[in-house]
């Protein structure tokens, strides 16, 4: 049958399955797996005919559906009948679908907010005096190391006393640094080490800073070579114009 199709775009196998379920008013808790599998495969075939790129996940779902179908076809042995809550082979798929449906509802909620907020305008920036920030230099690893060494040297000689050191991981430190930068805006490199009393804490902070630079979470800049280093969140750097 010649059929003119403007192929809808589905975000993925789950999206397509939910669509099939919805338009046919199928009870999601009791999916006629044979019917849905056939329709799913038909759609896949369509995609292939149209030379669309069929990504792996589509094939995985096809295999999953076929597998579930075959398990549903197998007669249950008498022992199985006795076990009441023998798992429905569709269960895992059902859970995925329900979860995905929820995600779609959340996305839809966000869409409504997006559309509403698009209609909202704020004032553009006043003609504030230009900050000469654009001439900020990006700091090299050596600048950072130098600043770090200076810090460690300034560390007071540890007095001999028994202390319980609360260990902090790099990840936790990253959170801390992000929080500070979000709260206070760009701050001096040294300021990030304020309150650090132990060498270990300083090292962890430094590692956190390195990691964050690598992940492009923060920027380390200075106005002139060997000048003070300023650290700012990448997110903060570009305000919507």
């Amino acid at each position: 049958m010649p059929y003119q199709v403007k192929l809808p775009v589905f975000d993925g196998p789950l999206d397509l399955l939910l669509h099939l379920i919805r338009v046919q008013e199928i009870d999601i808790y009791d999916i006629p797996i044979a019917q849905v599998t056939a329709q799913y495969l038909a759609y896949l075939e369509l995609m292939q005919t149209l030379n669309l790129d069929v990504a792996g996940e589509w094939l995985v779902m096809a295999a999953t559906l076929t597998y579930i179908k075959s398990r549903m076809l197998l007669p249950r042995s008498p022992e199985d009948e006795e076990i009441e809550d023998e798992e429905d082979p569709r269960r895992e798929l059902l859970e995925k679908l329900l979860e995905y449906q929820r995600v779609k509802a959340m996305a839809e909620d966000l869409r409504e907010r997006e559309l509403e907020h698009r209609e909202v305008y704020c004032r553009p920036p006043l003609d504030a005096p230009e900050d000469d920030e654009d001439i900020m230099l990006n700091v090299t690893l050596f600048d950072l190391l130098e600043a770090f060494t200076a810090l460690v040297e300034r560390l007071p000689e540890a007095e001999a006393q028994e202390l319980v050191i609360e260990e902090m991981s790099v990840t936790e430190m990253i959170h801390t640094v992000v929080e500070r930068l979000e709260g206070e805006g760009p701050i001096a490199f040294e300021a990030l080490f304020e309150g650090a009393t132990h060498r270990a804490e300083i090292v962890v902070t430094f590692l956190a800073i390195l990691e964050m630079i690598r992940l492009k979470m923060i920027l380390a800049q200075q106005r002139q070579p060997f000048g003070p280093i300023r650290v700012s969140l990448t997110v903060e750097e570009k305000q919507p114009a």
Binding site: Q4, P8, H19, R22, V23, I28, L98, Q101, A105, R111
Partner: peptide
Amino acid sequence: PLEGLPEEMQGEEFAALE
């Protein structure tokens, strides 16, 4: 979950497959 899908899925692009 059961109370219908996002309205967006009723958009034009889906009409054909429906």
